[in-house]
């Protein structure tokens, strides 16, 4: 009996470690977990990513995950090959197809955090090559470096500069310990819908008794939206309330120009930058004043193509964002798409 118990524990733990340490194991598990009506399913992202972090039951809204519906395009001539470097604001709202974009005949998408499975290459036909550099406001200051863009188009080793010891350390760690092992184990063990009630109870207990929001999340002063903590905390990088000096903005514009130059040398004809405001920047629910990061930047960019959806998103702002998700909803995404299409139409032939 004791032996049987030991075998059982060994098999369970070893199996768990193997699944959590391998990419294919986690892909299989994730796929299994997100099967609708699965007994051992996860509801983590069913109700928005911020609900998935916080488990605040007041924010348990089923999230509409359908892609934005494109309007009928007005451009007859499809003369643009669009290359997009972007984040989840882009790929979770739109299908990666030309049907959304004016003048676009082909599209390639690259994630900021580098997608090794996607290799950059120009399409054969010589069309106008447009690079769209998209990022949410909270990440802009970290991402807008020529090296970050180069790492996507060239070999990632370009930006690695580590000692031999550091490389040995990294190699051993990669072999023995999966980079996200702790998160993977947490997902494997606890991201089950049957645990959600306990998680909600804990979140409620902490909020009502201690006034403490779950880590990573902030409740809007108006109590009707959840935000990423980072975007509200005045001293955090990427916060809508962090002080950003004029000098820092000037540096940022200089970096954007370097990216533009780099892209043009690579063979792009035009570069468009678009920074999506943090939801809290638009919704203005807090009693702190917005640092006006994107509008101030727009005034400085000069000849750089820049798409700023802040003013448009502010109109009926609450209808443009999910209440329990860090992203815009379909309506918000559509507003941005319209502005981008205007920009694409205005590009020289």
């Amino acid at each position: 009996m004791k032996k049987l118990l030991a075998v059982l524990v060994f098999v369970l733990c070893a199996g768990l470690l193997m699944v959590s340490s391998s990419q294919s194991g986690m892909s299989w598990l994730t796929h299994a977990r997100y099967q609708p009506n699965s007994l051992l399913g996860s509801d983590k992202y069913l109700y928005g990513d911020l609900y998935g972090i916080s488990y605040l039951s007041n924010f348990k809204y089923i999230k509409d995950v359908s892609a934005v519906r494109p309007d009928e395009l007005i451009s007859k001539q499809k003369d643009i090959s669009l290359y997009v470097i972007g984040d989840s604001y882009f790929y979770s709202s739109f299908e990666i197809i030309p049907a959304y974009f004016e003048r676009v005949n082909s599209i390639q998408f690259f994630k900021w955090d580098h997608s090794p499975e996607v290799t950059f290459k120009f399409t054969q036909a010589r069309t106008k090559r447009v690079l769209l550099v998209e990022s949410v406001e909270r990440n802009v200051l970290n991402l807008m470096y020529k090296e970050r863009v180069a790492a996507i188009f060239e070999k990632p080793e370009v930006i690695q500069n580590k000692s031999v010891f550091a490389q040995i350390n990294r190699s051993i760690k990669q072999i023995l310990y999966h980079r996200t092992l702790e998160e993977n184990l947490s997902f494997a063990l606890f991201d089950l819908a049957l645990f959600s009630k306990f998680k909600e109870l804990k979140a409620e207990l902490n909020l009502s008794l201690f006034g403490r929001e779950p880590a990573g999340v902030k409740l809007a002063k108006s109590k009707d939206f959840l935000y990423l903590d980072q975007t509200v905390d005045s001293v955090a990088d990427g916060s809508s309330f962090q002080v950003v000096s004029e000098m820092r903005l000037a540096e940022l514009v200089q970096n954007m120009r370097q990216i533009e130059d780099y892209a043009k040398k690579m063979g792009f004809d035009e570069v468009i930058f678009s920074f999506i405001p943090n939801p809290v920047s638009v919704l203005a629910t807090e009693d702190k004043s917005y640092n006006q990061f994107i509008p101030r930047l727009e005034n400085k960019v000069g000849s750089i193509h820049f798409v700023n959806p802040t003013d448009e998103l502010k109109q009926q702002a609450k209808q443009n964002f999910f209440k329990s998700d860090s992203h815009w909803n379909q309506r918000g995404a559509k507003i941005w798409l319209d502005l981008l299409n205007k920009q694409l139409l205005s590009l020289p032939k």
Binding site: K2, K3, A6, V7, V9, F10, L12, C13, A14, L16, L17, S20, Y177, L181, E182, L185, S186, L189
Partner: peptide, 19 residues
Amino acid sequence: NSLQFLVFFGIVTSAYFLL
């Protein structure tokens, strides 16, 4: 205080008694 340790402890302890 990590899940990694929980799994590690389970593997090592059970293997210890099986060996």
